[in-house]
């Protein structure tokens, strides 16, 4: 349980914290939610990246969020822990997963070749979205851990954020 009192009217552990600044939280939801609302990347790939970053952090609160409508299959979701040895993932997905796992603790060591590989896989605009998304997933894991936010319960069909939805 978080060490900070809960914001009134919160609908999730993240809102219990950010809801103390409700107007800013609404703006943050609009920004963060753009990743899903505007589908800046394939939602299944976005889900893979989010979970890959969360796995590096061992962030139970982030891992508990399941965006089931993302299109990420149960088989792939289950295989993410062993994606390097799994044959379920494409070469493009492997490149993205390897890069995503570097963001939490090795962001300064990412090479031009690694960046080029992701750009080849996603295109230039896709690489921009990927970089922003991966960095936000890392930061969200970290804020969940420092605030000791509880894993979200139920209501799994929705993305982690949406301009008009709940911040999970």
């Amino acid at each position: 349980m978080s060490w900070l009192e809960k914001a009134p009217g919160a609908r999730s552990p993240a809102e219990e914290f950010f809801g103390h600044r409700a107007d800013l939280m609404e703006e943050f939801k609009a920004f963060y939610g753009t990743l899903w609302d505007e589908a800046v990347l394939d939602p299944a790939l976005l889900e893979m990246i989010r979970l890959a970053v969360a796995r590096v952090h061992r962030c139970d609160a982030e891992l508990a969020i399941r965006h089931e409508a993302s299109g990420l299959s149960d088989a792939k979701r289950a295989a993410l822990a062993n994606w390097r040895s799994s044959d379920l993932f494409s070469d493009s997905e492997r490149v993205c997963l390897a890069y995503a796992e570097r963001i939490p603790f090795e962001h300064t060591a990412i090479t031009d070749a690694e960046a080029e590989a992701v750009k080849d896989a996603l295109g230039e605009a896709g690489y921009v979205a990927f970089s922003v998304a991966g960095s936000l997933f890392d930061a969200m894991c970290r804020v969940r851990m420092v605030m000791a936010l509880e894993p979200v319960q139920g209501d799994a069909l929705h993305p982690p954020a949406s301009a008009k939805g709940v911040l999970r």
Binding site: M25, I103, H107, I110, A115, V132, S135, D138, A139, R142
Partner: peptide
């Protein structure tokens, strides 16, 4: 907390995109 979340994400995005 919101600010540090944004600062961190912004810094890492800047760095990784060169």
């Amino acid at each position: 907390g919101l600010g540090v979340t944004l600062f961190l994400a912004l810094a890492k995005a800047l760095i990784t995109m060169g």
